[in-house]
Design a protein around this nucleic acid. Structure first.
Lengths: 109, 109
DNA sequence: TCCTATTGCAACCATCTGATTGCTATCCAA
DNA sequence: TTGGATAGCAATCAGATGGTTGCAATAGGA
């Protein structure tokens, strides 16, 4: 279940980060700390249900972690792990593009 | 025209890199050097027209550059510039998430 | 107990997206 | 001049995506 393939992790990170609403949710969590879907919906121009859908996608990508709390409330916390994987993926790609020899070595190795 | 906003550049890079077919096109260009849409279509399981659409998106994101050659043939070459911008964007995000103080400083400064 | 706040789930809808087919135009070589 | 290879453009289509409304369930306070 640990999604070991960096490209798969990176792809999910790219797909989730490509949406402005999702980035806004992440920005709100970064600015205000862990929050529930209802809290986030109050700060954004979309409904709670839409926020929940985005949080589900973000959780699948590993960018947020759901933390069950008291009174059936679920708070979401940021996790930078997958983003660091994606960042390394981008760095490796840029290196390959700038150096055909490095790309060849990567494909062989 | 220089798209100075890093977040805008990063968003376009994320959107284009989220698609597997587009990554396959980039991988083919990385492995075989600059190529035309027709060349790429021969290596991929999609039509030339589909490749052209993807190349147009990639060119808008700045990840490939169109190079007009002889006999009306247009070759596409990789450019890692926008990917480096996106990588820096991811690095800054990860830093903010791991350090609320850094995030606050970024918002203020 | 009853009311309010919160959550989860399903149906629905409009738009975007990735891809196709079909046609036209151009270039070069036979 | 005829034909083959290449490129561009438009219409079309199925499925994914982002968002909404509506409803049922549950938990806590008045």
């Amino acid at each position: 279940m640990h999604e070991p393939d960096p490209e798969t992790v990176a792809q999910e990170v790219f797909a989730t980060l490509a949406d402005p609403t999702r980035r806004a949710i992440l920005a709100a969590l970064s600015a205000g700390g862990p929050a529930t879907a209802t809290d986030l919906a109050a700060q954004l121009p979309i409904t709670r249900q839409a926020v929940t859908k985005h949080l589900t996608l973000l959780a699948e990508a590993g960018l947020v972690v759901a933390e069950p709390g008291e009174r059936r409330r679920i708070r979401y916390r940021l996790d930078s792990g997958p983003m660091k994987v994606a960042q390394q993926f981008l760095a490796a790609l840029a290196r390959d593009w700038d150096s055909p020899l490095a790309a060849l070595q990567d494909r062989l190795g």
